[in-house]
Design a protein around this nucleic acid. Structure first.
Lengths: 202, 202
DNA sequence: ACACGATTATGAACAAAGTTCAATAAAAAT
DNA sequence: ATTTTTATTGAACTTTGTTCATAATCGTGT
C-alpha cells in the first residue's frame, strides 16, 4: 500500500483533474468530492492531498481548464471574418461564449457558481489567465476607436463582456424566469450589441 | 425538553429566518448551518426541521427576503424624478441595484451564489416575485417605445437588467480582475445605458 | 545480493455538515 | 386525575474535508 509509482506526480495531477472534470460535466461541481475522485482513479482520498493542497486547489485548477477552453474557443481565427465589421464578429464571439455556456453548462458554472472560500485567495496566474480573455475582444473593437482611445476601448470591452455574460448567466441559471419568453437569447444579444455599438459612435 | 410553546410556529419561522439573515450578513450564506441557527435562537437543530423541510427551504425563504428588499428599494418613488428622461431614472435604478449589491454583498450573493440543488425545484411564488422586479423597469422605459412595442420593450428591459447585473456581478465577485482599473463602475454603467438607449432609437 | 534510507500511498480518525426519528416532557382535553 | 396530543429534544447515521502515523515499496550504496 505504498510507493507504487504507477504514475508520476504529473500523471496523478492530470488523472485527478480528468476525473474531477468528468464528474463536474456529469453532475456539476458539487458532486466533486475527494472520495469520488479517489475511487475514479483507483487511489484513496489521502493521495489527492499529496498532489493538491486542498479541494479548493483542485477546483481552482479545474477553473483554469475551463478558462483555457473558453480562451481557445474564442481565439480560433477560423470563426471570424477578418473583412467584416466589428459588430459582426462581436456577435459571433458572443454566440461562441453563449454556446460554450449551454454546451458545457456544468463546467462553465464552475467559474461562477463555485464560491471560493473567502479565506482562499485566487492565485495570480489565474487572474492573468482571465485577463487574457479580454485581448481578442479589445482587438476586435479596436477599429471603433480613434488612436489614443485605449481607455475607452478597454472600458467598452469590459462592458460588452459583462453584458453578454450577464445575459448568459441569467439564462443559464434561470435565475430570471421568462427571460426567454419574449425572444431568442441570441436575438437579444444581437440587439444588445447593436445598441451598444451604435451608441459608441454617439 | 418538549412542548415549551414559548413561541408560535410563525414566531419560530421568523426567528429562524432572522438568525439565518444575520449569519449571512456577517459571514456569508455558507456559514448558515442548522446548528448555528439553533444555537442562535436557543433551540436545537431538530426544531428547524419542524418548521422548514430542509436547509434549502430556509435558504430559499432567505432569498425571498432579499428579493423583497431589492424590490422595495427600486420601487420607492422618492428616488426618481418623474419629469426626467428615462435614461436619467434608469441610471438611478442601476445605481440603486449596484449599491444594494455592495452594501449587502452577502445577502445579494445569496441570490446568485447559492446554487439550488438541481433536484430542488424553485417554488412558483419565488419566480413570480422575481418577475415583479421587471415591472418598474418596463414602466420606466415605456416612453421610448411606440404603442404596440410591448415585445421590444420587454426585451429591452431584460437586456438592460442582464447587463447591469452582469457588471455588478463580475465586480462584486471580482471574477474578472481589473474590471475597475479603467473606470468607476458607475461610469461604466452610465456609459452602457447611454449606449443602449441611444441604440434603441437606431 | 542485501540492507537501509527516502519516498509514497494508505486508511483510520477527527470535526462538522444535513437529516431522521424514537423518546420525552409538557400542554390540552377528557 | 388521567389520557391524549404535540412540541422539542438529542442521539444516531451518513457524508464531507482534512490530517497523519503507519506501512509498503523504490532507489541506492555497500
Amino acid at each position: 500500500m505504498a510507493r507504487r509509482n504507477d504514475h508520476s506526480r504529473e500523471e496523478l495531477k492530470t488523472m485527478i483533474l480528468d476525473a474531477a472534470w468528468n464528474i463536474t460535466g456529469d453532475e456539476g461541481f458539487s458532486a466533486v468530492t475527494a472520495r469520488r475522485i479517489a475511487r475514479a482513479i483507483g487511489y484513496t482520498p489521502g493521495t489527492i492531498y499529496n498532489v493538491f493542497t486542498s479541494m479548493d486547489d483542485v477546483l481552482i485548477a479545474l477553473c483554469a481548464r475551463v478558462v483555457d477552453e473558453l480562451s481557445a474557443m474564442i481565439t480560433l481565427p477560423s470563426h471570424y471574418d477578418p473583412a467584416a465589421r466589428p459588430d459582426h464578429n462581436l456577435k459571433i464571439m458572443a454566440r461562441l461564449y453563449r454556446r460554450y455556456a449551454s454546451d458545457h453548462l456544468h463546467h462553465w458554472m464552475l467559474l461562477f457558481g463555485y464560491n471560493l472560500t473567502e479565506s482562499t485567495q485566487v492565485p495570480e496566474w489565474y487572474n492573468e489567465k482571465i485577463a487574457l480573455l479580454f485581448d481578442p475582444l479589445e482587438q476586435m473593437i479596436s477599429p471603433l476607436f480613434a488612436p489614443g482611445g485605449e481607455r475607452r476601448k478597454k472600458i467598452a470591452a469590459r462592458i460588452l463582456w459583462s453584458s453578454v455574460h450577464g445575459l448568459c448567466f441569467l439564462e443559464a441559471t434561470r435565475k430570471i424566469p421568462f427571460i426567454t419568453d419574449y425572444a431568442d437569447p441570441e436575438e437579444m444579444m444581437d440587439y444588445m450589441i447593436d445598441g451598444f455599438i451604435s451608441g459608441i459612435g454617439r
